[in-house]
Design a protein around this nucleic acid. Structure first.
Lengths: 170, 170
DNA sequence: ACACGCCGTCCACGTCAGTTGACGTCTGGA
DNA sequence: TCCAGACGTCAACTGACGTGGACGGCGTGT
């Protein structure tokens, strides 16, 4: 044994379920759940979700491949789960995520953090604060973080230690 | 036609040539060139390149999807250039590259537009501050915003009238 | 020389990714 | 109330992806 593959083997997931049943804020695992999360998270400037036809047309207008709204629905519903490279590329381009988001690896996790953040930012004031902090020095940011924790405690919210770090990747 | 896409549009990049004739000089652009580079670069412990059948069998043995040696040849030759998600996943897994390797220009194309915002947040501290602000009351957020402005001024940064409000793109 | 095995090449075919089109629902306006 | 348009949903269909197998070249042992 040994010379079968250049990299260490990994078992693989066969999670081929249907849609996104209970993962309202959980981590999507199937492709359908990932697509669903994109639709629920990335919204037009005002209004609800993008319509399937809207996304399809926008992708075509960007010079992307032809795609139909019905197919987007199939993907989100989980009735189709094996799109081609061009369609993955187009979807990633439209929703503003790296194509690797659709694959089973760590990258999708970090993207999901960012999507969660995007959802928060859409809700008004949080966004303002976040954007203004860009460019500040490390010390100031740390100080601000402590201030926020102070305020959180005042309002009776947990200090929320988690939320992870961005791992460097090869 | 403003709200077609959450990210700014861009022109096309529909370079769909055939194989990898002379581009031994530079970086691979087409899928065929990328696959070719993988075969030329990733070798078995001893000997020359992997044979197509060997790769196909190894992928199947890893629990991956079924794939044929003929198809790998088609991909490398450029006669097929639109594989499905599972095949991309399997190829990336075998050769030890991230799946995003097969896509056009990971993070610098049109993704950048919307992702530029997220890229700011990705780099550590900014993100932490932003995430922690979720759940805070409106008054606290406003107070924090003022604190941030104070700090920005201290560091000589503009108070940044832009970026905060309104539709995210032209 | 001959046979055997492995490999790259390529073609004809089957399967499933993706499209087309129809139907029912809902909202807003005349 | 009725009509028009937009949208989600779904089934039948088309075509490209992907496979199986045939053919020839090349190295190796007998």
């Amino acid at each position: 044994m040994g010379d079968a593959s250049p990299v260490g083997g990994r078992g693989d997931s066969d999670g081929r379920s249907a849609a996104a049943p209970d993962s309202t804020t959980g981590l999507p695992r199937t492709l359908a759940e990932k697509v669903d999360l994109l639709f629920r998270t990335v919204h037009p400037a005002k209004g609800g979700e993008y319509s399937y036809e809207h996304v399809a047309k926008a992708i075509r207008d960007r010079g992307g491949p032809s795609i139909s709204g019905s197919y987007l629905w199939l993907l989100r519903k989980g009735e189709r789960d094996n799109p081609t490279l061009r369609h993955l590329e187009a979807l990633a381009g439209f929703f503003g995520v790296p194509p690797g988001y659709f694959f089973d690896d760590d990258l999708s996790d970090s993207v999901q953090d960012q999507l969660a953040l995007l959802a928060l930012l859409r809700d008004g004031d949080v966004r303002k604060v976040a954007l203004r902090t860009s460019g500040l020095s490390r010390e100031s940011l740390q100080a601000l973080g402590e201030m926020v924790d102070r305020v959180r405690k005042l309002e009776g919210l947990p200090v929320d230690p988690e939320l992870g770090e961005g791992p460097p990747h090869p």
